Computed example of a mutant assay.
Amino acid sequence: MLEPLLSLVIATGLLLGSPGPAPLALAATGAIYGVKRGTPFLLGILSGLSFAIIGATAGLAALFASFPNIKTTFQLLGAVYIAYLACKIASAPVVASNAFQSAPGFKDGFILNLLNPKAYAAFLAIFSQFLLPFEDSAVGYIITGITCLLVATVVDALWLCLGGILKPVFSHPIQARVIRIAFALLMLGAVIYALV
């Protein structure tokens, strides 16, 4: 059981930890607002990810295969919402006044991953390739899902903390503006890459 578990953890870490919209948004939130103020956003992302896990195990792939327009609609809604978050990050004030500006919250994180096709695709791949071998397949799906959520929690918290490490740079207005715009452009690039 150790080898399949290790394979699952590594695959999940790589799939969910690669720089996509959610990790980049977490890093930007940590850099701009700090880890403490970014925690509700992280919890929202993890809650949205829980829905993606449930959706993947409940046969969302079959729904998307039967009705491709639904998948396209999810992709477009997700892209628009990620673009909104990228604009919010890029246009945030560059001086210390961001203490009074609201950081992305739980709802923002939840919607981000709820509409994130990358999350659904990642879990469909994980469940088809790395499902933990239990005699009862339902137990295998549940334990695999819980393991994925635990790995995602660690990986996403690391992205938020990585951003938090950059927070001191944000006391310099020019550097702060450059980093915010870079994070926003990376988020938009990840969306465009996913759509193409």
Score class of each variant (00 low, 15 high):
40 P>H: 09
34 G>S: 14
156 D>L: 09
13 G>C: 10
195 L>R: 11
179 I>N: 09
116 N>H: 06
175 Q>G: 11
51 F>M: 11
112 L>Y: 08
159 W>A: 06
76 L>R: 02
23 P>H: 13
188 L>G: 05
8 L>M: 13
104 P>H: 14
110 F>E: 02
103 A>T: 11
158 L>Y: 00
86 A>H: 11
142 I>D: 01
70 I>W: 02
133 P>A: 05
93 P>F: 04
115 L>H: 12
2 L>A: 14
123 F>V: 05
148 C>H: 03
173 P>R: 13
40 P>L: 05
28 A>M: 00
22 A>W: 04
17 G>E: 00
104 P>I: 15
193 Y>R: 05
35 V>F: 13
41 F>A: 10
168 P>L: 06
106 F>G: 02
8 L>P: 01
161 C>Q: 13
96 A>E: 10
48 G>I: 12
98 N>R: 14
101 Q>T: 15
174 I>F: 09
92 A>I: 09
46 L>F: 06
162 L>G: 12
61 A>T: 13
178 V>W: 08
177 R>Y: 11
4 P>M: 04
96 A>M: 06
189 G>E: 06
45 I>R: 02
131 L>H: 10
77 L>N: 07
149 L>Y: 02
189 G>W: 04
67 F>T: 10
81 Y>I: 11
6 L>M: 14
132 L>D: 01
48 G>P: 00
7 S>M: 08
54 I>Y: 12
1 M>L: 01
135 E>R: 14
34 G>Q: 12
97 S>D: 08
174 I>W: 04
59 G>A: 08
30 G>L: 02
186 L>V: 01
119 A>H: 03
186 L>R: 02
116 N>F: 07
166 L>G: 03
54 I>A: 15
23 P>Q: 12
40 P>Y: 04
162 L>D: 00
127 F>C: 05
59 G>C: 03
60 L>D: 00
125 A>V: 15
23 P>D: 11
172 H>D: 14
38 G>A: 06
87 C>M: 13
56 A>M: 06
42 L>I: 03
136 D>T: 05
138 A>P: 00
99 A>S: 15
22 A>N: 09
144 T>G: 10
